[in-house]
Design a protein around this nucleic acid. Structure first.
Lengths: 340, 340
DNA sequence: TTGGTAATGAGGTACGTACCTCATAGCAAG
DNA sequence: CTTGCTATGAGGTACGTACCTCATTACCAA
């Protein structure tokens, strides 16, 4: 049998009330009593039963995911994973909801964050580019006792605050390695397509990509990044231009999470050519493209894992617990047709 | 507030006792009463609070992992993940322990399984090759109310019983795809090294590997599998022989989970040559080899994910719940230097 | 000595569920 | 009508922890 608070009280020679005061950091206990109880906890291996505690304080976990307001397939995937997690954790009194934001408007995001309070929310996972406004708003939430988490993007500095997402430099480097090794040592130019290069995520991916290509694959030449700004006609036009002025393109790396529009254009143009194409994120579109050999590899992060990891971290923070770091590292996954 | 059993009783117009009888499948309730309560559960969206239930029946989950008795680095990794999970789930009253078996002795395994009973164990995850003895022993455990799970290997038929592990055919095919694409279209022979080809896992990996190579990479020639039987000198000898009689080997696929011994030999021989080498499982050895470019890619399954998935499945089974299938699929991961 | 305050104990109720005992209502067979 | 049975209700205790109130003790300063 695992020791309970009662056992702990007996072992420490104090009353249940004192044990309770120590466990919950209440006032009115002498310092050496606290120390003694703490030592007894170690000694008898007392482990708090969080389920029972949550039951007693009728606590439930209410988490909020702040996501961009686009129609992106990757986002839909995230949203359905959140719904799924809601079911999976339902018997543990956890409820996650989604709110949409304009990711490019830090002011609006900060405003929204300002309206949140402990009565309604225990933790917020925010998917938005870094900005001073949002950073401050997060700090203020933390002060009010609401846990915050940078989700997928928006990590200001590694190690600063909680972050759930992949290392984008590593993701780009992985794409670069595959591009190089899939190139059959044939000279050619490599086109990089991004939604915007103003986001840190994109920059890091490009950096990692270039590093590997430059170091190990001298027969490949990098072209400047094309920026689509998420506009279909623009995307179509700039890609066609790029192909017109560079007949020797041999590889394409789409580093934004929405690969659909650029790839549709590319497919039109280069039906005949042998291009190596690498994109990001698994969506119904990219999955089909991989299966039909229109693209060669995907660099992904598992949406379900992202969501569950965010929830576990927020829950642990909300309990004042530590988390298993090894479990929470989001892997840069490589998907080929064979391991879909 | 989530409805409780009390709310359910009121809503269904029955007493708490009857609700309890229905929820726990006890006798003494008229069929239409059961039906009415069940409908009310749906109607008001009642969700059982498993934490409270476990508290009330002072239930804890005791799981056992049956692992082979080798000194394999992959196994050590698994064992430390189990220890880690023990800490992580401690506050939820879960305890996982490890027992070692001789994986090649089905009779002994079956005997051991026969000694288990509900008083001490709620679920067993078994990592052992399929065999009629073990299969029967598992069936008898299930009859006694102990959950069983095929862990990593030993799945008799897909869909038959719970299984946690990767699709080995897909893993082999993934290795094949990488071997083909990394080969720069240069003709050569491919060596496949296994511990034994008598295990279904090995067969499936080889099958998947061959399929892809044969279909898409005609310039590569497959050699028959070398079997090491886990013996160091034998391994050394047969690999040297293979290189002596096939000077044009250009690729090596080590499909067993212990790549250390074969790779040490290969490194000795082929320091100078440009070989494409693909192995399985991430261990301190393979990780170092990947970083130092002695091997080109790893096909892995995440040990932490394997362990946690097994625990979640056994716990759900023990609760009579469903699990989130999407969460429990173990991915065939590809590891390069860049996404370690 | 007295008063004040900080530290501690004793004992209760609550959370949502399981499980137990006992009482009672309904119904059918004798 | 009685007997016997099944279905149901009423009420309790327990699980491990939180949180509340009130009483008691110890200690310090005046």
């Amino acid at each position: 049998m695992r020791p309970t608070t009662k056992d702990l009280a007996k072992a420490a020679g104090v009353s249940l009330a004192t044990v309770d005061r120590v466990l919950n950091d209440r006032t009115g206990v002498r310092e050496d009593t606290v120390k003694h109880v703490t030592q007894t906890i170690e000694k008898i291996g007392f482990i708090r039963n969080i389920s029972a505690a949550n039951l007693a304080r009728s606590k439930s976990y209410r988490f909020l995911f702040l996501l961009p307001r686009t129609g992106d397939q990757f986002l839909s995937e995230l949203i359905s994973r959140i719904a799924e997690a809601n079911l999976g954790f339902a018997s543990e009194a956890m409820r996650a909801s989604v709110a949409h934001i304009h990711e490019s408007d830090p002011h609006q995001i900060a405003n929204f964050l300002g309206t949140l309070n402990r009565e309604t929310v225990d933790g917020v996972a925010i998917m938005a580019p870094e900005s001073p406004q949002v950073r401050d708003a997060k700090a203020r939430l933390e002060e009010r006792g609401i846990e915050t988490l940078s989700f997928i993007s928006g990590q200001i500095m590694p190690g600063e605050g909680a972050f759930v997402g992949i290392d984008n430099h590593a993701a780009g480097a992985t794409a670069g390695r595959l591009m190089g090794r899939f190139s059959d040592r044939k000279p050619g130019k490599v086109l990089v397509i991004a939604e915007t290069m103003r986001a840190r995520d994109s920059l890091e991916r490009r950096l990692g990509f270039d590093e590997v290509i430059n170091a190990d694959y001298p027969w490949l030449t990098m072209l400047p990044s094309l920026e689509t700004y998420g506009e279909a006609e623009r995307t179509d036009r700039i890609i066609k231009n790029a192909f017109a002025s560079n007949p020797d393109i041999s590889g394409i790396y789409v580093l934004s999470s929405e690969a659909r529009v650029p790839l549709q254009t590319v497919t039109q143009i280069s039906e005949a050519r042998q291009l190596v194409i690498i994109a990001h994120e698994r969506t119904p579109f990219t999955e089909a493209a991989l299966l039909s050999r229109r693209i060669d590899a995907l660099i992904t992060q598992d949406p379900g894992h992202l969501v569950r990891s965010a929830i576990r971290i927020m829950r642990a923070a909300s309990d004042g617990r530590e988390v298993l770091a090894s479990q929470e590292k989001i892997r840069v996954e490589i998907l080929l047709r064979e391991n879909l």
